[in-house]
Structures are given as structure tokens and as C-alpha cells.
């Protein structure tokens, strides 16, 4: 179990992460979603002990994580910068990881380099954005760390490379189950891989749910303004539009069949809300509103 208790990360007077509590059972794939500047990287930095939380604690299997050799050895956090020296060759990066990582699989690393068509003799400085991400994937997966954290390691990758990344991620997870946390904006194409989804916004935890629970969680109700207003009263509104006398309201609500039948007889239409839309609605305003007539 990974436990975050009231974790805050501040840079001077800037608050990046504020009072986050999370319990993450190990052995699952998590998706960390949040807009740019929502505090994802700061949260992950605290989780991986790259930075001591300004306040609060991170515990892994009951042990305080910061500067704990047993925990840090088992944690692999890949950031988009790769955290390397620009003059290093890819080969040197992998060799270094091989020296330090107890579960490093050099053959698998070589296979992945091949898959992403990366020349190990290239220097880090001469890699394109997408190639850097791919090297990050290689470092992250081949380390086989019990806690593997990949921070947007798809930036600059084309659709083919991303697809290969997701396939390898899942395949390697199935063969070597471990805790994987993936932060991303590209929810739609990768959500199927996540067992659970964590959404943060403005440094605060917005949601931590089983991914499957989010599918079909929202609903869009469309119809005559008065009928819609009457129907949606009392539910949490995520967004709404009005055109002439027609009103469309997106709710954070899973109506049951009886509700749907009642709505349909009142001339209302119901539309599903995908995970991507739900995420956009949840994070596009600070506070969801209570519906009124």
C-alpha cells in the first residue's frame, strides 16, 4: 500500500500540491490525470522522494519513503527530461540503470530500443522529443521497479510509437505485475489500461475511482429548457448549453432505467459522457454547481 497523508508541495509562496490524501493499493495500473500546471509532476516528485513534501507524509508498505533506501531502490520515476547529462549516450544511460537497478532486464531494454528504432550510440542531446520519451519508456519498463512512475512519457511520440508503448506497458505488467502510475493528458487512448484513475486539479485531489466506474458515470440531458430544469434539479451539473428553447445539461450522475423512462416520457433525450468529456467537465471549472431550475 502506498499512503499519502495530507501531502503538500510548495515552492516559496506558490502552492503546487495541497493536502492530498491517497491510498494506493499496490500491483495496479493507475492513471494520473490533470491539466497542465495542476500539480501532477510535483505530486509524483514527492511520491518518488525526488522532493521532500513541504508537509505531510508518503509511506510505502508502512515505511516512510523519503531517503529510505529500501523504498527508493524499488521506485523508478521517469520524467520527460530523462534526468540525464546531455552528452551521455543512450547506451551509457542504460548501462548506468543496469548497474543500479536490481531487477534490470538488459535483453528487454535492447528489445524495446529496437522496437522504438533508437540507436543506442546516439547522445541524449541529439534525441528528438519523441525519442527521448521512448528512451524514458525503455528505462521505466526495463527497470521492473515495484513502483514505476511514468510522467507523460509519450510526449512527441507518434501514434504508432504510442500504441507500441501501451502494448508493451500492458504486456510487461501482465508478465511482471507491479504498481505503475502513468500521468497523461491523452485519456481516451490509454484509459482502458488503467485500473484506477486519479484526477487532480489546482493541486487538490478531485477524484480517485475505479476507471470502469467512470464509464457511463456522466449523462447529458437534452430537451425543452423547462423540462430539463425540472428533471436535473438536485444533481451536480458539470456543464450546460442553451440554444433557443433547448437546454443541454451534463450531470455527474448515473440515472437508473426508471429515471430514463420518466425523462423520455417528458420528451428528454439522454446522451452518454465519455471519460475524456467527464475529465474536461470536472476540471474546467473549480467548483461543480448544484443544478437549479
Amino acid at each position: 500500500m502506498i499512503e499519502l497523508r495530507d501531502v503538500s508541495v510548495r515552492y516559496g509562496s506558490t502552492v503546487a500540491v495541497e493536502g492530498i490524501d491517497l491510498d494506493l493499493p499496490t500491483g495496479k495500473i493507475y492513471g494520473l490525470l490533470g491539466r497542465n500546471g495542476s500539480g501532477k509532476t510535483s505530486l509524483l516528485s514527492a511520491l518518488a522522494s525526488f522532493r521532500r513534501p513541504s508537509s505531510g507524509t508518503v509511506r510505502v508498505d508502512g515505511q516512510d519513503a523519503f531517503e529510505n533506501p529500501a523504498v527508493m531502490r524499488q521506485t523508478c520515476f521517469i520524467r520527460d527530461t530523462l534526468d540525464t547529462n546531455e552528452s551521455d549516450k543512450v547506451r551509457a544511460l542504460l548501462r548506468f540503470a543496469g548497474w543500479m537497478r536490481p531487477n534490470w532486464d538488459a535483453d528487454y531494454a535492447a528489445k524495446l530500443l529496437d522496437l522504438f528504432e533508437i540507436n543506442p550510440r546516439k547522445r541524449a542531446s541529439s534525441l528528438s522529443r519523441g525519442q527521448k520519451s521512448a528512451v524514458g519508456v525503455v528505462l521505466g519498463l526495463a527497470a521492473r521497479a515495484p513502483l514505476t512512475i511514468l510522467d507523460e512519457t509519450y510526449l512527441g511520440m507518434d501514434a504508432v510509437a504510442r500504441s507500441a508503448f501501451y502494448r508493451e506497458l500492458l504486456g510487461d505488467y501482465l508478465a511482471h505485475p507491479r504498481t505503475i502510475i502513468l500521468s497523461t493528458h491523452l485519456i481516451e487512448e490509454v484509459a482502458d489500461l488503467f485500473e484506477r484513475v486519479i484526477v487532480i486539479d489546482h493541486g487538490r485531489l478531485l477524484l480517485h475511482e475505479e476507471t470502469d466506474e467512470l464509464r457511463g458515470r456522466g449523462v447529458t440531458v437534452t430537451g425543452p429548457a423547462a423540462a430539463v430544469g425540472e428533471f436535473v434539479a438536485g444533481h451536480t451539473v458539470l456543464g450546460e448549453q442553451t440554444l433557443g428553447g433547448v437546454r443541454a445539461v451534463t450531470l455527474d450522475w448515473r440515472p437508473d432505467p426508471a429515471d430514463l423512462a420518466r425523462g423520455e416520457s417528458a420528451g428528454l433525450n439522454f446522451g452518454p459522457v465519455g471519460i475524456q468529456d467527464l475529465f474536461i467537465h470536472l476540471t474546467s471549472r473549480a467548483q461543480p454547481l448544484e443544478a437549479t431550475r
Binding site: E67, P69, M72, R73, D83, N85, F96, W99, M100, R101
Partner: peptide, 16 residues
């Protein structure tokens, strides 16, 4: 300047 970060990102603690 160069090696501290490299070691920590590869799983060593600062004290190690």
C-alpha cells in the same frame, strides 16, 4: 552537478 541526480533517479538515496 552531474552524478547526484543520476544516482538518485536510479534508486539511490542522497545519503547512499
Amino acid at each position: 552537478a552531474m552524478h547526484l541526480r543520476q544516482f538518485v533517479v536510479n534508486g539511490a538515496t542522497r545519503h547512499e
